[in-house]
Every structure is written in structure tokens, then in C-alpha cells.
Amino acid sequence: MDSLSAPYASLDPDRVLDAVTACGLWPDGRLLALNSYENRVWQVGIEDAAPVIAKFYRPHRWSDAAILEEHAFAQELAEADIPVVAPLVFGGRTLLHHDGFRYALTPRRGGRAPSLESTEQLEWLGRLIARIHSVGARQPFEHRGRIDCATLIEQPMRAVLASSLLPPSLHAAYRAAAERVDRAVADRFAAVGPVRQLRLHGDCHPGNVLWTDAGPHFVDLDDARMGPAVQDLWMLANDDKAMNALLEGYQHMREFDFGELALVPALRAMRQLHYAGWIATRWHDPAFPAAFPFVAEPRWWEQHIADLHELADELL
């Protein structure tokens, strides 16, 4: 297998330990593979020190410049006393190279998922997200792209239509449903009008927020992009009550444009369509068939098509 069809085939435990050792650390042999499909992430025990997290970037996904922008943003947030896990620096560098892989090390910061039923926790998260956005608004990303239809609808749709996962008998139905979502999303963005674009966490779902007795901290800025502020809020809000609590906290720290709330159904539709395209794009990676076997079944695509129509209906 080549590096494109199986990009992590040669990333065995010895290479992980060697990469950490190359930074001047002394692994104690304890390795724990963490749940990650886009990249590969390991917790590595260190002799007489706290463990570190070693993240190996998927080849060809981000340029070095884009990864360095992610790192710089995380460091900028940390310097502003915002609880974000930023990469460690070795020899003045955060993006490291070893044996053909690009990787970064971060401190291990544990925690549990936040309670999305707790008004207190949601308001706390709202305040912190507002602080992230205040830093994010200082300057734009140059290399990391935007939350837009080209990235989250058009590219994934092409990937699905080119994939053997989609049964030929469903090609026309899928295309019609995806194009309907595309039009509905474009119409919603046009109706809302221009909104301020800023640097975002980008993938602010409950799995990327860890709660401890000291409060929450944010991890994994791998999907950081330019986009509207509401992108970092809607995945933490199960209902209107939760969104109100998030915004109550947010507005203590930063003004919020309430017109952006009308974008939430569009952002939800974009994420769902992108999910199928992401799996189709990555199906050559052996980890994906093992993790998502249901996507190879026609009935999954039939349900996905029905879901797309339901999302388009919501946007009418």
C-alpha cells in the first residue's frame, strides 16, 4: 500500500516513540491510541514527567503554513489566558518532522464532557467562546479556508458521486437531494446577508471541550477556519434554552449578531452533507471501513438522502 491509500501504514508504536524521543523527551514505553480518524493521536508516557499527546497529521490535508497558523492561533489564545491546549515548542518549532510524518506534541489535559443541560456550564462556555472570538477577530487566517459551500457541500458532493460507496441506483436521487441542500443553503446565506468572518475553533462540539474541577478547556483546533461566530456555538446547544444560556454568557464578554442564528439550519445541513463526503474521501484508509461499516450499506444512503431532503425543507 502507498502513502495515499494507507497513509498511516508505517506509523507503528516504535516510530511514535522515536518521534517523541527526537524531541529530547524520554518515553517510558506506555502508549495509548486515542480516538481520532482524520489524524492519528497517541498518549505517550514520559519518564519522571507528565504524559504528552502526539498528533500525527494526515498527509496532504493541510499545508505546513496552514498547520502553523493553527498552532499560532492556539498559542495566541493561550497567551490571552484562554484555556486552550497549545502545542509544545522544541528548538523554536511546533510543527515537527520525523521519518516522513509531520506531528506536534501537546501537554496531556484530561477531563470529562460538559453537561449541556447545565445553564451554569453553558454560560461559562459562552463566555470562553466569546473570548476566543475576541482574539480570533484580531486578524484573519491566510491559509486555512472558510466555512463555505465550496468546502462543505460542493467538494463532499463530488466525492460521494465519485465513490463506489454510493449505489449506482441512488446516484440521481443523491444528486437531486444534495443540489437541493446546496440551493437552500445558498439562499439562506443570501437572505441573512454579510456576516462578520473571524478565526474560529471550527469544530466546537462537546467532544472538543473537556471539563475539570477547575472548569473547561478546549482541545483540537484541527478544523479552525474563518467563519461566522455562531459556528462555534450551535453544536453545543441542544435546544433554544441551551442556545440562550450560551448567548447569555457570550454577551457578557462580546457583542453577538443575532441575525447569525438564522444560519444554524444551514450550518447543520452543511455538516451532515460534509460528513458523508468525508467518509467517502477517506474510505481508502483502512480505519474508515472498520469504523463506519454501515456506510457501505444501501439503506444508509437511502436514509442519508431522506435526511438531506428534511434539512432542505427546514431551510425553506
Rank of each mutant, 00 (worst) to 15 (best):
M1I: 11
M1A: 13
M1D: 15
M1S: 15
D2E: 15
A6N: 13
A9P: 03
D12Q: 09
D12S: 14
R15C: 06
L17H: 02
A19S: 13
V20L: 06
T21N: 13
C23W: 05
G24Y: 14
G24E: 05
G29M: 10
Y37K: 14
Q43M: 02
A49R: 12
P51Q: 03
V52G: 00
A54D: 05
H60W: 15
D64G: 11
I67Y: 09
L77Y: 06
A86S: 05
L88K: 02
G92F: 15
T94I: 01
T94R: 05
A104G: 02
L105G: 00
R108Y: 12
S115M: 15
E117R: 15
Q121P: 09
G126R: 01
G126P: 00
R131I: 09
R131H: 10
S134I: 11
G136I: 00
A137K: 13
R138F: 07
G145M: 03
D148G: 06
P156I: 02
M157Y: 11
R158V: 12
A159F: 11
V160Y: 09
A162K: 06
L166S: 03
A172Y: 12
A173I: 14
A184L: 01
A184Y: 02
A186R: 11
V195G: 01
G202L: 04
V209A: 02
D213Y: 04
H217K: 08
H217W: 01
R225V: 11
W234E: 03
M235L: 07
A237I: 01
Y250G: 01
G259D: 03
A262T: 15
H274S: 06
A280K: 07
H284M: 09
F294M: 13
V295A: 09
P298R: 14
R299L: 13
W300A: 09
H304F: 12
E310F: 15
D313Q: 14
L316T: 13
